[in-house]
Design a binder for these strands. Structure first.
Ligand code: FES
Ligand code: FES
Lengths: 143, 143
DNA sequence: ATATTAAAAGATAAAAATATCCTCTATTTT
DNA sequence: AAAATAGAGGATATTTTTATCTTTTAATAT
């Protein structure tokens, strides 16, 4: 469904979102440990998220990553799109060059509903929504 | 969502299912042309489908592939599982070692519904359902 | 100012997925 | 029986994804 890179990205963003407001930033090492992802690879992914303005980074001592602004303003679909692109949202499930009503693949009509369900969920679920669940201890970022 | 191999597999199975009952089998060349997939790679995938008893093959002149029995008895989820395995149906969306209620990832509760929607659709959509759509010309296997 | 810290950037490496090619085997036709 | 056909199986190649390592750059602390 999502690439590994995308899963790491989502988990990392959630972890950063769980940090108390205005707290010191989290370093790469801390983040990759918290979400059980390979450190160097995670670094690349965080760079990408920074480029997409979903995350901010600070170099040097006590540097690290943080989210500026409200975590309720960032939704999961933004993270997915930043890392995996929009094929999940717009591509044909069976690999036709483009997904369209005019020239639909054999599962288009059935898939449409699922896609809408999925994208609707990703577009309405904020980082705050999911980070809160982690903070109160009812969901987990690793194992 | 699905691997390329799985998309080729689904399209190929649908194509074979569109052939009139009891007709001569379709050869690899014919199939891969019909669904616009790379021939040799498609051959490997069809082998796998044969191993999973979703497809039958005959060697030699006028050989090829066909489905024995009723195409309404084969559902899409069987093809997906044969090629991509069951991670789509049972794996955690965010990469936790296992998906469970006891130790859920932050999107588990939201994902559960989508997964059920998706697997429900794949388990109830038969090859005949989709092949019929192709035969009456309202959906397409390539481009 | 200098040393230290930590992310950015670039170069490689390893693994997995996709794709092709060649030989072997079974079947059919002549 | 021999030749031709077409899938099976194995080996190899390419591409993409995942992962690591090294160097550079920016910020901080001494
Ligand atoms: S055309 Fe295949 S999903 Fe829309
Ligand atoms: S635990 Fe992640 S989807 Fe169920």
């Amino acid at each position: 469904m999502f690439s590994k890179a995308c899963k790491y990205a989502i988990n990392a963003m959630i972890y950063v979102a769980t940090l108390p407001e205005g707290q010191e930033r989290a370093g790469l090492k801390e983040i990759s440990k918290a979400v059980n992802s390979p450190e160097a690879f995670t670094g690349k992914i965080l760079q990408e998220l920074v480029k997409h303005d979903l995350l901010h980074s600070v170099k040097g001592p006590n540097g690290g990553f943080h989210i500026q602004g409200d975590t309720s303003k960032i939704v999961l679909s933004e993270i997915v799109e930043a890392i995996d692109g929009d094929m999940l949202f717009t591509g044909c499930a069976l690999g036709l060059e483009k997904c369209s009503e005019d020239h639909p693949c054999p599962v288009h009509h059935k898939f449409q509903a699922i896609r809408e369900h999925l994208t609707g969920m990703l577009m309405t679920t904020s980082l705050k929504d999911v980070a809160d669940r982690v903070n109160i201890g009812i969901s987990f970022l690793k194992y």
